[in-house]
Design a protein around this nucleic acid. Structure first.
Length: 406
RNA sequence: GGCGGGGUGGCCGAGCGGUCGAAAGCAGCGGUCUUGAAAACCGCAAGGCGCUCGAAAGGCGUCUCGUGGGUUCGAAUCCCACCCCCGCCGCCA
């Protein structure tokens, strides 16, 4: 959630920033609700103070107390209603983008750089379904569309990728974590996926649990409700988990293969740090992501995501897009966001500083998903449909070659 | 699934109708001592919200002892519901 006091004190600047995410309506509604609430607080406080007496009251005082309490009851009801409206809107207003974020929407990401040589093939490049044992038909028979059986050398290569990514980030000071993937509502709300992204979340109503779409949820909630000592910061984690996404609204998009599936695995980095440090940590996350992609040898580019495409929690986001020869374009394989204090406020994840207790900043970034491996398949294929697996993955247990037969 | 125990400040833990936002200890911060440190000793320290109090440090009001409701002039303490954690037994991987 946003810092309502800061917004109250400088509404025009906040409105202008939020306009870039198309959220002025929610913001103005919030300011109204906040004003209503704010007007009631001193009233209720005053009535409450009149109900407080030292020692045993006289019978006359008791009569008077009863009158005050009746009035207080009505005022408290009003206050609770106002607080309810205010909190509801507070949950809906997104994190404003940083000033440096490019304007516009999905198509307005700004390319920051291109790295690596794109391969040229004297043949028609195959896509991942033709290069590895990935069985979508039987996956669909088992579980529906967008589910894959990953088999043979590809399965081993996937595990090698995750192990490589974990080893790499561990060497960079991130603590490896295997987190729960079923979480309570508080964690989904605290990370900002609820209420905004509800349609994309699998829920187990009978048990009141949600399946996480990324280990970001479990990692962010790791310090929910805690007050961290400044000396212990920054805290850097890397979660390995299966991720579940309903992909509502993606109908007809990326329907071939396992490019976009309901269930996939991911190594995700997550950082808690003091506010002044978060831009620097964001650069670190991007740097680590690039290191991994470069070690794999995939040609890629880095894009700075535009304000309108940021999502509720992110104030800034960089994606790495890998080259996919069969599609003839760059596609997202990692994403790193600075969510500033937006998640930390909701989660009540705070730290003790010289200036008192204040919300932390949180950041997340993809270390590796199977999508990176799909790009590896396509970029390292030969004319016979055989993929020559990068050495770094072989070191972590992948076979030297992968094909549709093995 | 059955039975039982319990949720109090950063941590541990006492309190079981008013004098309690709350003892003691640990960790933290400040100081004394010391060449320096440790030890010892003294002291300071919960969080949220609000304020046409204050330049600030701070001050004042209010809420919070898992959450919500109730009893009472008055609730951390009594009653009800819910949530969560732990233990034992049963069943299962």
């Amino acid at each position: 959630m946003i810092d309502i006091r800061a917004a109250r004190n400088d509404p025009d600047a906040w409105r202008a920033a939020l306009a870039r995410k198309g959220a002025t309506e929610a913001f103005d509604a919030l300011l109204d609700a906040d004003r209503d609430w704010l007007a009631l607080v001193p009233l209720v406080d005053e009535l409450r103070s009149r109900t407080k007496l030292k020692g045993r009251p006289t019978p006359e005082q008791i009569e008077e107390l009863k009158a005050v309490k009746a009035e207080l009851g009505r005022a408290e009801e009003e206050l609770a209603a106002a607080a309810g409206r205010r909190d509801e809107l507070l949950a809906l207003v997104p994190n404003p983008p940083e000033p440096a974020v490019p304007g516009g929407g999905e198509d307005d990401a700004v390319e920051l750089r291109r790295v690596g040589e794109r391969p040229t093939f004297p043949f028609e490049p195959r896509d991942h379904l033709e290069l590895a044992r990935i069985d979508m038909e039987r996956g669909a028979r088992l579980s529906g569309s967008r589910f894959a059986y990953r088999m043979g050398g590809f399965a081993l290569a996937e595990l090698a990728l995750y192990r490589f990514a974990l080893d790499h980030v561990a060497a960079r000071g991130f603590t490896p974590v295997i987190p729960p993937v079923l979480v309570r509502e508080a964690a989904m709300y605290g990370t900002g996926f609820l209420p905004t992204d509800e349609v994309n979340i699998y829920s187990l109503e009978r048990d009141e649990l949600y399946l996480t779409g990324t280990s970001e949820v479990a990692l962010a909630a790791l310090h929910m409700g805690e007050i961290i000592e400044r000396a212990d910061l920054p805290l850097r984690y890397a979660g390995y988990s299966t991720c579940f996404r309903r992909e509502a609204g993606a109908a007809g998009k990326d329907t071939r293969g396992m490019f976009r599936v309901h269930q996939f695995d991911k190594v995700e980095m997550f950082v808690f740090c003091p506010p002044e440090r978060s831009p620097q940590e964001h650069e670190l996350l991007l740097a680590v992501e690039e290191e991994i992609v470069r070690e794999l040898g995939i040609p890629y580019r880095v894009v700075d995501i535009a304000a309108g495409d940021l999502g509720a929690a992110a104030a800034r986001k960089y994606d790495i897009e890998a080259w996919f020869p069969s599609q003839g374009r760059y596609r997202e394989i990692t994403s790193t966001s600075n969510t500033t204090d937006f998640q930390a406020r909701r989660l009540e994840a705070r730290f003790r500083s010289e200036r008192g207790i204040q919300p932390l900043h949180t950041l997340n970034g993809t270390a590796a998903t199977a999508r990176a491996l799909l790009s590896v398949l396509e970029n390292f294929q030969d004319e016979d449909g055989v993929v020559h697996v990068p050495e770094v993955l072989q070191r972590h247990g992948a076979p030297a070659t992968i094909s549709a037969r093995a």
